[in-house]
Design a protein around this nucleic acid. Structure first.
Length: 943
RNA sequence: GCGCCUGUGGCGAAAUUGGUAGACGCGCCAGACUUAGGAUCUGGUGUUUCGCGACGUGUAGGUUCGAGUCCUAUCAGGCGCACCA
């Protein structure tokens, strides 16, 4: 019979489920280890072979840790709110909850077949009210907190209110939307509504009228990371800038902490770099410029304070409020025309069209250092959202300013010795300053001439600060996250509106469940889909949801119609896994203290600037609240690579139904056609299967080479339309889950993207069969003996134990699989059937191929699962060799090999003797200059 | 433009601190057993040469007794950021 993987795998998957083998509970006697996969969005297409790659890798890690005696948390769940289910609902009227449920069941079925050690008792779904209770709860907490910059943590908004009522805004150093100057008297004189509106300036979850990425096609706003190259990441629809009132999260308040935190976590350098770029810290100077013949002043931000003497014009962003103030009567028409023109363009168009454009406002600013008059322009190359929306332009040392100056014929004034600005600007931050100031401003108190750029920046900063002309400022590219979506299938906001002012519903009333609607589209008046909900008003007397018709704005108020974006539910899910059924808290103190944070997080790199930013922010907020014990949620992060599809082609001779094999195709005029990879094996087409694949090929003719039809191939994205999707189920059926697991790991480094290619899978399958044959004879009788192992056998197995023990923590799985193969070959050659050796083999293989190992483990007489075995330790003694082959080289040449003692000192003596002999033998007339003994492999004798 | 990463056989890939480059698997070649082979087993397989040998880790230098590994330059590919002042 031999290795019957189908039966074995079914048996053990059932056994694991029945025995709850992978259930995990907090256990203070054991050290914890938390392994987590980025939970999937259950799409209608099901899993393809690329999805399990990361799950298998983390599963191996989890099983390894368990064998090492750790209490391992390895949960799984579903990120089940999302666009596809909603769009399907719009098209078919089917409630998204139903499709989502179906998809989840399909996912679960597929996952179960691969033999993961997930603790399904802890499963969570983001669309489950039990779960989003805590998403809403966190939102209310964010609404009720502000960020204290000096204390570097968030604080209850009540503390801010107290400060405002006692001292006004004077003593407040808090993250805010806009700088506010207000006295206590002013604050106290405000109405409730006015106060609430002003508090939005500080709340961490706040409502803000802001320029948003509006996607008309999707009918919703998008966060910055959901917009790529000016189009929506999902669907690729155009995105325009639109001013709208939206919920936002003050992520920017945590910018510095998120940046600093990167140094303390074990992520890849490239991912950290991506986040650093996204946060975009920029240290510079804010400088105050006055306007000629006016008492208006405005600030600009620059990283090149040293170039202040080279400023020949100023530029405002078209959206800047200053534009209206600074435009003179004479220029008004021109400016308005220009702004109209830029408004009409989408961001994408603005990026693509890099032609220089702009218009003069008619006003002049005064250089605060020299007193020079500088024209103020408007141009769309300056962004309103970054810095102050106004810049000082130094054409000699900034390429964008340079292009602008050239186009409009503005003076270009070089400030660095020896730089040539006749063709292009000199942007490098290096060189010696000159012309700073020029003779014309010789009496200027600031003199940078002769300094390096670095020194000049520091000197100018000091001068500006001392003379109160501005201040040192750090800017971040990271924007606050826009948190409203005009969609149905998402978490509802626990917010109602009283006199147009938002108030959270009481925490004890959570969760606020998503209401039923008749239609999933926006309402006729343009409200989000929740506008259709009948039961969508808040009764403040009974603290419950009630009919919308009852709204009286006295005790019954309208509820928020927007829902939360996709990243809301995925931001703190790892905390919920620690204590998923807790009705009183997101996570209990005990569970949180025990599990702490995720030790190993595995997922795709596409979340670098989305989920992984929001999640860190969200966790830091909860950390400030004392809810989460760790500031960083994911200690180590591994990005698994993508698995691409390997498409196959057949070549049809034009206007015929004849197909010609790959290497003969060049002789004909052919059309390449995608062919389903499932009817191709090792690039050889199954001709019969091809004829039945599609009716039009039923009577296809073939021109073969060597009696075979060879297909062409290409690496493409795995997709239905290219017929290159490989479903893990078919692999499991044909080879078994253990082979699939081994093979996915053998394919190459986990972190690397690679095409799926079934060509090598037989090798892994053969290994498992050979492994099986070490234990059983042809009639499936166990052939294990209790004999003492030989030295050679011990060496072979200890080599394997060493390799696995060192490689698994390093995530070097492909070489580990090789090591298994080598060991199995060696033991096969030695005809080893000794328990003392083979039991260890089973244990170290168990993380990779759990089913076959359980089966063997059981027939070896064990009554407990192989999961509860103990990871063997290797003994260096068995690995040592008395003598090692060394390579002898003369001046690095003329090499031959011979044995030497492993002991370095002995080897030195032996090699010296050898050198003496060599001298006599080969080079009698030349003396030996040098003998080098490198402990390990080579003895080099130099003449 | 700035930043990060990667370049090794026909293919996927190995290579501890610099120490016999190409482990392991696929594919290919030969043989064995078979009615049969897309099963199994054994041996071979970087290039070149009949052989000895020579040459080989994108390219060009450098350090070293010795470089895939370290340094410099350069080319190619991938990823991230990007009118961010």
């Amino acid at each position: 019979m031999g290795y019957n993987f189908n039966e074995i795998e079914k048996k053990w998957q059932k056994r694991w489920r029945d025995n709850n083998t992978y259930r995990v509970t907090e256990n203070a006697d054991k050290k914890k280890f938390y392994v987590l996969n980025m939970f999937p969005y259950p799409s209608g297409a099901g899993l393809h072979v690329g999805h399990p790659l990361g799950y298998i890798a983390s599963d191996i890690f989890a099983r390894y840790k368990r064998l090492c005696g750790f209490n391992v948390l390895n949960p799984m769940g579903y990120d089940s709110y999302g666009l596809p289910a909603e769009q399907y609902a719009i098209q078919t009227g089917q409630h998204p909850a139903i499709t989502t449920d179906q998809n989840i069941n399909r996912y679960r079925e597929q996952l179960d077949k691969i033999g993961f050690c997930f603790d399904w008792n802890r499963e969570i779904r983001t669309c489950d009210p039990e779960y989003y209770h805590w998403t809403q709860w966190a939102f209310i907490k964010m609404f009720n907190h502000y960020y204290d910059n000096s204390a570097k943590c968030c604080k209850p908004i009540e503390e801010l209110i107290t400060k405002l009522s006692k001292e006004g805004s004077a003593g407040i150093d808090a993250a805010c939307t806009q700088e506010v100057n207000i006295t206590a008297e002013q604050w106290n004189a405000m109405s409730e509504n006015e106060q609430q509106e002003l508090l939005m300036n500080w709340r961490i979850a706040f409502l803000n009228e802001t320029m948003v990425n509006w996607c008309p096609k999707l009918g919703t706003v998008l966060a910055n990371d959901e917009v790529v190259d000016g189009v929506s990441e999902r669907g690729g629809y155009p995105v325009v800038q639109k001013k709208m009132k939206q919920w936002c999260l003050r992520v920017s308040a945590y910018a510095q902490r998120m940046l600093d935190g990167l140094d303390r976590i074990d992520w890849t350098e490239s991912l950290k770099e991506t986040q650093r770029n996204w946060i975009g810290r920029s240290e510079g100077t804010e400088m105050l410029f006055s306007v000629k013949d006016s008492d208006v002043q405005f600030t600009i931000f620059t990283t090149r304070a040293d170039t202040i003497f080279g400023v020949t014009f100023m530029v405002l962003a078209p959206e800047s409020e200053l534009v209206a103030t600074l435009t003179t009567e004479a220029q008004k028409a021109a400016v308005e025309e220009y702004i109209d023109r830029t408004k009409k363009r989408t961001e994408r168009e603005r990026i693509i069209d890099r032609n220089v454009s702009g218009v003069f406002t008619g006003s002049y600013a005064i250089n605060p250092i020299t007193g020079e008059e500088i024209p103020v322009w408007v141009s769309d190359y300056v962004l309103s959202g970054y810095g102050t929306g106004a810049i000082m332009a130094v054409p000699a040392h900034d390429s964008r300013d340079y292009a602008f100056a050239k186009h409009f014929g503005i003076e270009i004034r070089p400030l660095i010795e020896g730089c040539d600005v006749s063709e292009e600007s000199f942007d490098a931050k290096e060189g010696i300053m000159t012309n700073s100031p020029t003779a014309a401003f010789a009496d200027c108190k600031l003199n940078l001439n002769g300094l390096t750029v670095k020194e000049a920046i520091a000197t100018t900063k000091r001068y500006v600060t001392e003379n109160k002309l501005g201040r040192v400022k750090v800017n971040y590219r990271l924007r606050d996250a826009i948190f409203s979506r005009q969609r149905y299938w998402g978490e509802p906001f626990p917010i109602f509106y009283k006199n147009g002012v938002p108030y959270p519903i009481p925490e004890k009333c959570l969760p606020l469940e998503l209401p039923e609607v008749e239609k999933f589209l926006p309402t006729e008046s343009g409200e989000p889909p929740l506008g259709h909900a009948k039961m969508w008003a808040w009764d403040t007397v009974n603290n419950c949801v009630t009919e919308k018709e009852k709204i009286d704005n006295e005790t019954i108020f309208p509820l928020e119609l927007n829902t939360m974006p996709g990243f809301a539910g995925s931001s703190a899910y790892y905390l919920r896994y620690m204590d998923p059924r807790n009705h009183n808290a997101l996570v209990s103190k005990e569970a949180d203290n025990y599990w702490q944070n995720v030790d190993l997080y595995v997922g795709g790199t596409e979340h670098a600037t989305g989920h992984l930013i929001y999640s860190r922010f969200w966790n830091m907020f909860l950390f400030d609240l004392g809810v989460s014990v760790k500031e960083e949620p994911f200690q180590k992060l591994v990005n698994q690579g993508m698995i691409q599809g390997r498409s196959n082609f057949v070549y049809r001779i034009k206007d015929t139904n004849t197909f010609v094999s790959l290497n003969l195709a060049k002789n004909y005029d052919v059309t390449p056609l995608h062919v389903d990879v499932n009817i191709v094996s090792n690039d050889i087409l199954d001709i019969e299967a091809f004829r039945t694949w599609r009716p039009e090929y039923a009577d296809a003719e073939f021109i073969l080479e060597n009696d075979k039809y060879i297909c062409g191939w290409a690496i493409e994205k795995m997709s239905k339309s290219m017929f290159n999707v490989v479903n893990p189920d078919t692999i499991v059926e044909k080879y078994g889950a253990d082979t699939l697991r081994m093979y996915e790991m053998f394919l190459g480094p986990v972190e690397q993207s690679k095409p799926w290619d079934t060509n090598g899978i037989d090798g892994c399958h053969r290994f498992l069969r050979r492994m099986w044959n070490l234990f059983y004879d042809k009639d499936d009788n166990l052939i294990i003996t209790d004999e003492q192992p030989t030295k050679e056998e011990l060496k072979s197995i200890h080599k394997l134990i060493k390799k696995t023990t060192e490689d698994i923590p390093a995530f070097s799985y492909n070489t580990t699989v090789s090591a298994f193969m080598i060991c199995a070959n060696e033991l096969g050659t030695l005809k080893c059937n000794k328990r003392a050796i083979l039991e260890n083999f089973v244990i170290v293989l168990a993380p990779f191929a759990p089913h076959i190992c359980e089966e063997i483990w059981e027939s070896l007489g064990h009554t407990t699962s192989v999961c509860d075995a103990q990871w063997p330790t290797f003994n260096e003694e068995y690995l040592k060799e008395d003598r090692i082959k060394y390579t002898i080289s003369f001046n690095g040449k003329a090499r031959f090999t011979m044995d030497f003692a492993t002991d370095a000192d002995k080897a030195y003596i032996e090699s010296t003797v050898l050198a003496d002999e060599m001298t006599k033998k080969y080079i009698e007339d030349k003396p030996i200059k040098k003998v080098i003994v490198v402990p390990k492999k080579i003895v080099n004798i130099v003449f």
